Amino acid sequence: MKYLNLILFSIVFSFTSFGQEKNNIYKKQIDEIDAQIKIIDSNSQKYVEDYDIKPIKNIELEERSWEAYYLKNNEKEPLRIKYNEFSPKKIIGIIIYYTNGEIIFAEYCEKYKKSKKIIVRTKFYFNNSKLIFKTNNKNSKFGLKELLNEEKLIKSGFIK
């Protein structure tokens, strides 16, 4: 019985250690991305930010609208996009950061309009425009495919 417990403990410990190692591999990259985000936000007044807001026409006849802020550097490459979609009950927000024209981070957040209580929040970290880490939210149906589709639509409204 002692040997069985020892074997089970060893197996469980090795799996949890492997998961932590994997997170540690990306921790340095994630910390670097977080630092780049802080630099973009702290220097945002140096760049041009476009703004757009429009109602959404939909078949449910709900009052819906969206707003987007597009921060770009002097070479007109995107640095940050903030997008919010408003419905009567919820707000959906997407924020995307770029370095050298490549996506480095995105966050999807869905919350109740009145209470501001967060329903779903998912963070995506990228290296060379490839996903390296995503926070796991079981309630989220918003994945990488949906994020990249939304990014393409939002950017198309600002890039001429």
Rank of each mutant, 00 (worst) to 15 (best):
Lys2Asn: 08
Tyr3Asp: 14
Asn5Met: 13
Leu6Glu: 08
Leu6His: 00
Ile7Asp: 00
Ile7Tyr: 01
Phe9Gly: 00
Phe9Trp: 04
Ile11Lys: 01
Ile11Ser: 03
Val12Asp: 00
Phe13Arg: 03
Ser14Asn: 02
Ser14Asp: 04
Phe15Glu: 03
Glu21Leu: 13
Asn23Cys: 08
Ile25Gly: 12
Lys27Gly: 13
Ile30Lys: 04
Ile30Cys: 06
Asp31Trp: 07
Glu32Cys: 11
Ala35Thr: 06
Gln36Leu: 13
Ile37Phe: 07
Ile37Cys: 04
Ile37Val: 09
Gln45Pro: 06
Gln45Arg: 11
Tyr47Ser: 03
Val48Ala: 14
Val48Thr: 15
Val48Gly: 12
Asp50Ala: 09
Tyr51Gly: 09
Tyr51Ala: 03
Lys54Asp: 15
Ile56Asn: 13
Leu61Thr: 08
Glu62Val: 07
Ser65Leu: 09
Ser65Cys: 07
Trp66Ile: 07
Trp66Ala: 09
Glu67Pro: 08
Glu67Trp: 05
Ala68Leu: 09
Tyr70Gly: 01
Leu71Val: 05
Lys72Ala: 11
Glu75Cys: 10
Lys76Ile: 08
Glu77Pro: 09
Arg80Met: 14
Arg80Trp: 09
Ile81Trp: 04
Ile81Tyr: 03
Lys82Glu: 15
Tyr83Arg: 01
Asn84Glu: 15
Glu85Ala: 05
Pro88Asp: 01
Lys89Met: 06
Ile91Lys: 03
Ile91Asp: 02
Ile92Met: 13
Ile94Ala: 04
Ile94Leu: 12
Ile94Arg: 01
Ile95Asp: 06
Ile95Tyr: 07
Ile96Ser: 12
Tyr98His: 05
Tyr98Val: 04
Thr99Ile: 10
Gly101Ser: 04
Glu102Lys: 14
Glu102Tyr: 11
Ile103Arg: 10
Ile103Met: 15
Ile104Lys: 05
Phe105Gly: 02
Phe105Trp: 10
Ala106Ser: 09
Glu110His: 05
Lys111Asp: 00
Lys111Tyr: 01
Tyr112His: 14
Lys113Met: 08
Lys114Met: 00
Lys116Asp: 05
Lys117Gly: 04
Lys117Phe: 00
Ile118Trp: 06
Ile118Gln: 03
Val120Gln: 06
Arg121Asp: 12
Thr122Val: 05
Tyr125Phe: 04
Phe126Tyr: 13
Asn127Glu: 15
Asn128Asp: 14
Asn128Phe: 07
Ser129Pro: 08
Ser129Asp: 15
Leu131Thr: 08
Ile132Met: 04
Phe133Gln: 10
Phe133Leu: 08
Thr135Gln: 02
Thr135Cys: 01
Asn137Glu: 10
Asn137Ile: 03
Lys138Pro: 02
Ser140Gly: 06
Lys141Tyr: 10
Lys141Arg: 11
Phe142Pro: 02
Leu144Glu: 15
Leu144Trp: 07
Lys145Asn: 12
Glu146Val: 06
Glu146Ser: 13
Glu151Pro: 06
Glu151Trp: 08
Lys152Phe: 11
Gly157Ile: 05
Lys160His: 07
